[in-house]
Amino acid sequence: MKKWLIVFSLLSGFVQAETAIFSAQLPDLKNKIQAISQWKGKPMIVNFWATWCGPCREEIPEFIALQKQYAGKVQFIGIAIDEQKDVAAFSKQYGINYPILIGEANAMELMRKEGNQLGGLPFTAIYNAKGERIAIELGRLKKEKLENYLKELTRK
């Protein structure tokens, strides 16, 4: 019996880690709380970033283009580790076409739960339509590499 309790507790920890992103709720650019779970059901690309992060600034235009290319098939979500006013100005300047959520300490903890123990930016977690995390990338995610994930995730 003791052995089964240990196995169950280990499995419950794994399930919690895998679903942490879907239990998160963060404010959007209008300060309205958004549940990340609302986008479950299609592949998701969740990108943690900041306006002051050079590699983030490089990859965001590619994310914008890929969100447009895969509209209706994949959902990009940006979680900014930054001030709301800076993020709003940045989003407008770059023409970000996917949901942007504002995170501070909560987002840093969420990022750790999703596999980023170093707390570095940018950090991207990729989920399939079932909500299973299939990959994480710390640092700038090159468009070609992300496109390979997207092609696999959207293949019927």
Rank of each mutant, 00 (worst) to 15 (best):
W52V: 11
A20T: 02
L5I: 14
N106P: 09
V74R: 05
E109D: 04
T51A: 09
N47H: 11
A71I: 07
I60Q: 05
Y98S: 03
Q16H: 12
P27I: 11
G54Q: 12
P55F: 08
I102L: 15
M44I: 12
T19Q: 15
G41P: 03
G115S: 03
G72P: 11
A50H: 14
A107I: 08
A35E: 06
K30L: 06
V74I: 13
G103S: 06
G115K: 14
K92T: 00
S37R: 15
M44L: 15
A71R: 14
E114A: 12
I36G: 08
G115F: 13
E114F: 13
P55N: 07
I96T: 04
A20I: 07
L29Y: 10
P27D: 01
F48T: 04
I36D: 00
Q38Y: 03
F14N: 01
G115A: 07
Q69R: 11
Q34C: 08
R57P: 00
L101T: 03
V87T: 09
L118A: 11
V15Y: 14
P55H: 10
K42N: 02
L110P: 08
S23A: 08
C56V: 13
S12D: 01
L121G: 00
A89K: 15
I21K: 15
Q69T: 05
I21F: 14
S23P: 02
A17Y: 10
W49F: 15
I100S: 07
K92N: 00
A88N: 00
V74P: 09
P43M: 12
I45N: 02
G95V: 08
Q16S: 09
N116S: 06
W39C: 01
F76P: 08
G54D: 00
M111R: 09
I64Y: 10
Y70T: 01
I79C: 10
I64Q: 02
W49Q: 07
F14Q: 02
R112A: 05
E109G: 14
N106E: 03
I6K: 15
A89F: 11
G120N: 02
I21Q: 03
K68N: 04
K85Q: 05
F22H: 08
F48R: 14
Y94S: 00
L66S: 02
Q34P: 09
N106I: 04
N106V: 05
L10I: 15
C53H: 11
A71T: 02
D86H: 13
A50P: 14
Y94K: 12
L121V: 04
A88I: 03
E18G: 15
A17S: 12
V46F: 12
K113E: 00
Q38N: 05
F14T: 07
